[in-house]
């Protein structure tokens, strides 16, 4: 994807690692809109487009 697109996506700052820390974790909370949309996209069967066949139209 072009950098122009990537640059504008929201990104979380990477937290500084402390001693004994397991490293950065994914944030627990996402904006509700994104979470619901993501969940909806997760539920989509990846085979749907492969088995979707149509006749050529005009």
């Amino acid at each position: 994807m072009p950098e122009q697109v990537r640059r504008q996506l929201p990104s979380e700052p990477i937290p500084q690692r402390k001693e004994g820390d397991d490293g950065p974790r994914s944030p627990d909370v996402q904006p509700p809109d994104t979470r619901e949309l993501l969940e909806r996209m997760r539920r989509i069967d990846p085979r749907e487009a492969r088995r979707y066949r149509q006749r050529s139209g005009e």
């Binding site: 994807m1 996506l9 994104t34 949309l37 993501l38 996209m41 997760r42 989509i44 069967d45 990846p46 085979r47 749907e48 487009a49 492969r50």
Partner: peptide, 15 residues
Amino acid sequence: MFKETEGADCDKLKA
């Protein structure tokens, strides 16, 4: 948005 967290499986993106 989907690729950021779930990866870029081509069939899934087409779906």
